[in-house]
Design a protein around this nucleic acid. Structure first.
Lengths: 114, 114
DNA sequence: GCTATATATTCGTAGATTCGAATATTGTCA
DNA sequence: TGACAATATTCGAATCTACGAATATATAGC
């Protein structure tokens, strides 16, 4: 059970481990029910890409979709996920200096490999 | 900055998105400072593997290592990470039924692909 | 110095993830 | 029914991740 719980947590983290998916979750946290079209317009992403990211979030039951006519309205299934993001924002601010260094390094790595 | 923060969060989630790394973090949360040898004995993992996982956690500054003679003692850098895991445990329990289904599906997928 | 112990890194390969392009599905409205 | 709009799925290529085996580095004690 210890192990199941860890695999469960790892699955959730995996699903959240992408900037676009975090952006989606934050949008749903802030706006409640949002149709897919609005998601990709707001975030400036491809339709297919957003649909794929939503599939990942759905597969871990982080979001849920309600079909209404032609559209699908997505929303968060539980407020806890929003709280997790808030904790990380706190964390980011507490370690602001290092966090910025870390991001700089991440960018540097991109350049090296690009 | 919105975007930086999201990349930062995604990096943290990425680092936590593995059952072994979650196990390591939980061990450090429960025991404080722990030498590498104890980590891989307790978790039944290869030395190299643990070292690689620790490198991932270090790169996101989730853990820190203190060298003492021959050994390196690792610990969590911030209690917030422990809180994040606690929130997810709550979440797991709140959605216990679905969570178990989800895990069953994950196992099924493994079998299909293996 | 030499040997043993603890930890880290590198390397190769298998598997997973990401993305856009193309295509499929589903619902609406005439 | 046909044309259109919204969303989902499939496919292939590029990139990333995980693991064990082998190797490297650092420190202790003799």
């Amino acid at each position: 059970m210890q192990d199941s719980l860890r695999r469960f947590k790892a699955g959730i983290f995996q699903a959240l481990a992408h900037p676009s998916r975090i952006a989606i979750v934050e949008l749903l946290r802030d706006e409640g029910e949002v149709p897919v079209g609005r998601i990709y317009e707001r975030l400036g992403l491809e339709q297919a890409n957003v649909s794929q990211h939503l599939a990942v979030l759905r597969s871990k039951e982080i979001v849920t979709g309600r079909k209404d006519g032609n559209q699908v309205f997505y929303s968060l299934r539980d407020r806890i996920i929003g709280k997790v993001l808030d904790l990380l924002r706190q964390y980011f601010q507490a370690h602001l200096q290092e966090a910025l260094e870390l991001l700089k390094d991440m960018r540097k790595d991109e350049h090296l490999s690009g």
